[in-house]
Structure formats: C-alpha cells, structure tokens
Design a protein around this nucleic acid. Structure first.
Length: 281
DNA sequence: CTCAGTGTTCAGTG
DNA sequence: TCACTGAACACTGA
C-alpha cells in the first residue's frame, strides 16, 4: 500500500532498527525481477558487515546510507513493504500484523540482521517492487528523475501554479506523475482533489490561482495527516474520502461520503478514480 | 473463474 | 522532441 506516508513510516521503522548499527547477516531471495540490474548475491556482499549511517527517502523511494558505497535502494511497487519484528510479537509495518511464526514474512526478498539483534525484512508479494544498488542514489536514475518531494519540498504557491499552467493533462494524471511530484499515488490524488473541490479530469493548465492554492494546501495537509497517523488508515479523519472510496462492491449499495454525497468511479489518468461530482468542479 | 489493484515503464500516437 | 495514453508487468485476494 505504499504511497509517500507508507514509505515514510517504513523509513522511520528502518531507521529505528538500523541507524548506527552494523549489518551482521544478509539473506536475499533468488528473484531476478525484484533485484533489478544487480545479482542478489552482489547486494548481499555490498551489505554484509557495513554500518548503516542513515535511511533516506524521496517520494516513494527509500535507500540506506552505508559506511561504504554502493548503497541499496528500495521501491515497494504496489504490495511491498518493510517489516520489523517487535518484541515477542511481530509487527508488520506496511500491511497489518502477522504472528511470530510468520517471521520472516511471506514473500521476503531481503532480510537483514544487525549486530545488536535487530532485524528488518523487505517483502513483496506481487513483485512490482525493486531492489537496486547505486553509488549516489539521489544523483542517479530512477531517483534523480523524480520531481519535488510532495511532503518535504512543496514549491511555493506561485511556483506551483506556474508548474501546473504548463501541463495539459488531467490534474489527476499530473498529480500521479512522479517526475512532477514524488510520492503521490492513487488514493492521495483522489483525496486531495476531493478536499480541494476540483474534478480529476480538469486540465491542469485551466486551474485558477485560487484552485492551485487550495490544491497545494491539501497536498500538504493530507500527506502530513497521513504521516502523523503513522500511515495507519484507521487513524485518518473519519470524513476523508479514503474510508469510503472502496465501500462499494459489485451489486452492493452505491458508495457515498459520510455527508451522503454520491461517489463516482471512473478511469482518469489510467487509474480507477473515486470522486464526488456534486462538489468537485 | 474473473477481475481489479495505495505503481512504474515503455511503445504508440498526435 | 514532447506530452500524453494505454497496455504490460506479476500475483493475490475478493
């Protein structure tokens, strides 16, 4: 479920376990898809014995700064996530909870043990996630091709408006474009547009200064709120579209917001989009 | 059994 | 060349 808040939660979890510690053991899956452009064994050799100096994030990308390069870069795709064991129970950072017997979790691709006994695993069932090795992650693709971090590096309102004026695609598609803003995914884009009262199909270049200001403020508040909630959807404000967007099931009652507004589903920017025609223009 | 999904990439189009 | 669109990728769970 990884959009920016999820990846930030993973970054913090990884930081707590790994920062300042030495990697004492590494297990890698034999998976030539998730390990992209590098043999799993080479990742293992690059990590074992190294000390972790910091865990960095840009958009949905995560990487470990080690005391020697190259460094491992992680992307979670649709279903990947960082997992850490917590005490006797095992807490799943990204997807809920598993029992102690499930450690390391199913679909683990990379499993790190630290000298002080801590552990960390990256698991990904659908295999759309990626593990790469880079000498300078922020300066090399794919991270160098990302736009501003949607949470920590929002441009000024004026600059934001100028950037959107240059884009003709539907605003939803622009928000999803990682080379524009890094970290926004499908549910955040829908949530932000819902809260800003802007229809997802509106061409970005047609948004007024007032609309781009509203949009920018919601990007900040939605992501900030989700990060503050530890990316735990149950703790998001009750009135958010988030809780209702998938409330409909085939044959079930039509989805509505907590205020009773009808939620419509259609494809915009290549993704299923939930929006409220009565309030989004 | 079928289908959609909290993502990204790449070929094809205008 | 650029911006944009839609299919492909891989696999699970509803």
């Amino acid at each position: 479920m990884p959009e920016l808040p999820e990846v930030e939660a993973a970054r913090r979890a990884a930081h707590n376990v790994a920062a300042g510690r030495r990697i004492s053991g590494v297990w890698v899956a034999d998976d030539p898809i998730v390990f992209e452009g590098v043999a799993p064994g080479r990742v293992r050799r690059a990590l074992v014995g190294r000390r972790v100096k910091a865990v960095r994030r840009h958009g949905k990308h995560l990487w470990l700064e080690l005391d020697r390069r190259p460094w491992p870069c992680l992307h979670f795709g649709m279903t990947g996530g960082i997992h850490v064991p917590a005490g006797r129970a095992v807490r799943l950072v990204s997807d809920g909870r598993v029992s102690r017997a499930d450690w390391p979790p199913r679909f683990t691709k990379l499993h790190l043990r630290f000298a002080d006994g801590g552990e960390l695993a990256l698991a990904d069932g659908r295999r759309l996630g990626r593990i790469r090795l880079r000498h300078d992650p922020a300066a090399e693709p794919p991270i160098s091709a990302l736009g501003f971090d949607a949470w920590r590096a929002l441009p000024s309102p004026a600059r934001f408006h100028v950037m959107l004026r240059a884009r003709n695609a539907p605003i939803k598609a622009v928000l999803l474009d990682q080379s524009f803003a890094a970290g926004i995914g499908n549910w955040i884009a829908d949530e932000v547009l819902y809260q800003a009262g802007i229809a997802p199909k509106r061409r970005a270049s047609t948004l007024s200064p007032a609309e781009t200001r509203r949009l920018r403020a919601r990007v900040r508040s939605v992501i900030g709120g989700a990060v503050r909630a530890g990316s735990d959807g149950d703790r998001f404000p009750r009135w958010w579209l988030f809780h209702r967007r998938w409330g409909h099931r085939r044959g079930g009652p039509p989805a509505t917001t907590v205020r009773g507004e009808h939620i419509r589903h259609e494809t915009v920017g290549g993704r299923t989009t939930a929006w409220v025609p009565s309030t989004q223009r």
